[in-house]
Amino acid sequence: MTRRAAIMLVALALFALLAPWLAPYQAGEAFSGFLHAPPMRPHLDGLSPVVHPLVLADRLEQRFEIDSSRTVKLPWIERDAAAPVFLLGADDFGRDVLSRLLYGARTSIGLALVATLGAVLIGALAGAWAGYRGGWIDEAIMRVADFVLVLPVIYVVLVLRAVLPLVLPPSTVFLLVSWIFVLVGWPFVAKGVRAIVAVERNREYVQAAQSLGAGPLRILAVHLIPACGGHLLVQATLLLPAFILAEATLSFIGLGFPDPIASWGTMLAGAGNYNAVARFPWTLAPAVAIFAIVLSTNLLTSQPSPRNR
């Protein structure tokens, strides 16, 4: 199970990374005649996969019909500008959902990764220093961490984001939001690291290093923090889906990335229209993707249950 989950996660990460090469269309490429086009099912014509193209039946109702008389090759093989292939359907601007899903993965997972790295780094440093030093530094850092932990995450993120200018360019959004996530995420890491370091610092190898004249920084960097390696990895796997969700929520309410940047949250923002979601369910594809990621991370970190008689 765990192995399968790890494979699924790595695969998703790879898809995200290779988006510019895997995605059949650009994130912002819009086909004005194909708004809300449904997913097109590929089938085999001899040995090559083909798709029946769609023809507009009613523009106002955004209804399409399958033209069974013609076939179009998949966009990786051959592109036809007049007959785009939407394997996962198109959104309300006529943009390919599959391509936006892949590019969106890049944005959302990218942001979450950056934030996770930041939170892990700062959390590890803060926790290790607290655990190593003890005393009032330990008290102070842990009090702050406790305080942040008590607060509901989304509210803190919301307030911090909302007091900044409401409409910002995408690169600024990326930076600011990742910093907000780091601010909210470091206590999770810090508490665990502090606990481990507080125990480890009394071990012989640390005392040996100290007697050899190693400074605190060296001891932290070379011995203590690596001792937390397992814990850090677990925390990172827990933080990642949380940050993906937080970005999705922010973009959903309009405080995240602006259109036309593809991120899973901005793609879901159109789902505020209940009727559109009911008629065009493929626009909920990012929700499934997020579910897949959360599921994989849960599988990865779940303990096998104790068997009973």
């Binding site: 009613d58 106002l60 109702e61 955004q62 209804r63 309300d92 229209n273 209940y274 009727n275 559109a276 008629r279």
Partner: peptide, 22 residues
């Protein structure tokens, strides 16, 4: 949604084009 369920009889101003099909 409220117009559809009958809670509203009419709206303040026009509906959006995508709502016509709904």
């Amino acid at each position: 949604v409220r117009l559809q369920s009958g809670q509203l009889d009419t709206l303040q101003q026009q509906i959006r084009p995508e709502d016509i099909a709904t």
